[in-house]
Nucleic acid binder design. Structure first.
Lengths: 182, 182
DNA sequence: GATAATTGTTTACTAAAGTAAACATTTTCG
DNA sequence: CGAAAATGTTTACTTTAGTAAACAATTATC
């Protein structure tokens, strides 16, 4: 249970790209607390967890929503997908608790001009995706391509990669990572 | 915050008609813990609250759902009303956190034969209601009446009162209590 | 009406949550 | 490169969550 909370908090925090210390500062708690919660070494009180989430901000109901307590769910309606918005990029994730899972499937939407940021990302595993609409500029290693609806990609994630929507309409795509990266 | 959790737990527990000790037994926690949580004297850990709710059973998401964190909401869609089922009787409450509020408004539905039980209820305040459909037998003090759609009642709650659906179709009504009784 | 069972509360205690401050790494920037 | 800032972790300590057992009060049962 404590571990579940930790995994979920870490997933949310890193997805937003903020550090433990930053979250600690804005929520007014000790950074050691967040470190230990995420490590599953601490069993937070409700009010402590709320205090932390207030810094994101995220209501408790959303933190516990979806399949947080039903990791074995099989079917998900469209409006049940876990949504994580981050600037011009929004993610809709199939399933919420993906630690110990093999696949992370996302429906992503990049607003015009939005992207993963100036710096390329590197992590373990592999990932791939296929575009549904709009255009997406994908850079992997020293290769760059602008994809259109129907185009796809597949690469090992230890190669530096970044995404960017160069068009003037939103870009939708389905992506898959293995293992899930937070 | 701690007090909010306590009020809400107590509201849910008493609505289900179970005692602190019973809930403590089935959830495997000390009854003193439940007493102190409800009194707002204890700041439960998430896993402790989950352990308690597992005895109801109620998922954390539902506990924190609705307007638990937004006590100032004004409008509620039909499907947003807090539903509390109890045997043949179901309650749909307008708003969830009614402590410190003056009114508790419920849409109730009694299945045929269902009622508030053999023993009359007594508590402070006043309550009233109006029938939407079906029949409802209302007993207040030594007076009994069978109400039909459009009929209504109003009494001081310190008079022993009970409700029962004597018909063979569900009975719907809107009730109001002041102050909210849990 | 008296005994027994059940209710919620309080208390002394122990197990653990939460913090401040140090730690070891990594990243940033001149 | 090298100083400086920022990252997550660990540690010693204080506070508090959680428990068992007693308490007082109410309710059930004969």
């Amino acid at each position: 249970m404590d571990q579940d909370i930790g995994y979920r908090l870490k997933a949310i925090r890193t997805r937003l790209g903020i550090s433990q210390r930053h979250l600690a500062r804005v929520s007014g708690v000790a950074n050691a607390t967040i470190s230990q919660i995420e490590a599953g070494r601490l069993n937070p009180t409700v009010s402590m967890l709320k205090k932390v989430l207030d810094g994101i901000p995220m209501p408790l109901s959303e933190f516990f929503a979806d399949d947080f307590e039903q990791a074995d769910r099989i079917f998900f309606r469209a409006d049940e997908l876990t949504e994580i918005a981050d600037g011009g990029v929004s993610f809709r994730q199939v399933g919420a608790n993906l630690h110990n899972r093999a696949i992370q499937l996302l429906k992503e939407c990049y607003q015009p001009g939005a992207g993963t940021g100036r710096h390329a990302i590197t992590h373990e595993g592999e990932e791939c995706g296929i575009l549904l609409s709009g255009r997406l500029e994908v850079t992997v290693g020293d290769e760059t391509a602008v994809l259109r609806a129907g185009d796809a990609y597949y690469f090992r994630s230890d190669q530096p990669h970044q995404f960017h929507n160069p068009g003037n309409e939103p870009c939708e795509l389905i992506t898959a990572c293995s293992p899930p990266s937070f």
